[in-house]
Amino acid sequence: MHALSTFDFLLRLATGVFCGALIGVERQWRARMAGLRTNALVATGATLFVLYSEAVGDASSPTRVASYVVSGIGFLGGGVILRDGASVRGLNTAATLWCSAATGVLAASGKLAFAVLGALTVLAVHFVGRPAGRLLDQAPAAGTDPDAVVEANVHLRCDRAAESHIRALLLQSLTASGLTPTGLRARRETPETTSLRASLSVSGDIACALEQVISRLSLEPGVRDLHWHLDEEEDVNQAMA
């Protein structure tokens, strides 16, 4: 094993500091807790520890010291993880510190090109992963698939004298909202009131689709009761009755 020269020491140390600082620029730009200096110092420390083992000439020491660096950075990363209510902040920053230490270990081991490639990869993950994560966050959740079609019912109780007007207004409101009724049933409950039930198929956001209909009909003076529900909810209510 050849002795580590001063030039090699400075070259590896400079590469480690550069890689850590390069990663830290992105964190500083995002105004995160661990910015340019913190990442540069983490990479510098990892580089110096491994360089020490290289300098003493122990062939097995660099690998052993690198494993200690990995575990030590875990404690440092834990200090930047904060709990904010039900959410946790700082996980990305902690992982970035870990990666900065890894680039320092690579630089100290003489793998300068690999260290630079590692730093560039970390930056790519931040710049590409951020918009990709936001895109995935906007994906429809379970049960909100815009292509999924569900059956809904609109129930309405009105004055019997206003039955014809309310029925026409109900159909008009559904059509204006882009909804097509699949059935309409009228039932006279008492001599004074009539119950109307409109069945329809809805895709996408059900509440948004029926909001205008409910808002429009609720303003009519002849309407006494107005609500909507899914067919599944009606089945459950009938089973519990």
Rank of each mutant, 00 (worst) to 15 (best):
H2D: 15
A3M: 08
T6N: 07
T6K: 09
F7A: 13
D8T: 11
G20T: 03
V25G: 08
E26F: 03
Q28G: 13
A31M: 06
G35R: 03
R37Q: 11
T38K: 05
A40I: 03
A40V: 06
L41S: 10
T44S: 10
G45F: 05
T47F: 03
F49P: 02
V50S: 03
L51R: 02
L51D: 05
Y52N: 07
S53N: 00
S53E: 03
A59R: 04
S60V: 00
S61Q: 04
P62Y: 01
T63Q: 00
A66T: 00
A66L: 00
G74L: 02
F75A: 00
L76N: 01
G79T: 01
R83V: 07
D84M: 10
G85H: 01
G85A: 04
A86I: 03
G90A: 09
N92F: 02
T93N: 02
T93C: 01
T96M: 01
T96E: 00
W98M: 01
A113Q: 14
F114M: 13
V116M: 11
L120N: 09
T121V: 09
L123P: 05
A124N: 07
V125D: 08
F127H: 08
F127C: 06
A132N: 04
D137M: 13
Q138H: 04
Q138E: 07
P140F: 07
A142Q: 05
T144E: 12
E151H: 11
E151V: 12
N153W: 11
V154S: 10
V154Q: 12
C158T: 15
A161C: 12
A161N: 11
S173N: 04
P181C: 03
G183V: 08
L184R: 09
L184F: 14
R185A: 15
R188L: 14
E189F: 15
E192Q: 15
T193M: 15
S195R: 14
A198D: 11
D205E: 13
I206G: 02
C208Q: 07
Q212S: 09
S215A: 14
R216Y: 13
L217Q: 09
L217V: 12
S218Q: 14
L219A: 14
P221M: 13
G222S: 15
R224T: 14
E232G: 06
D235W: 13
Q238I: 11
A239G: 14
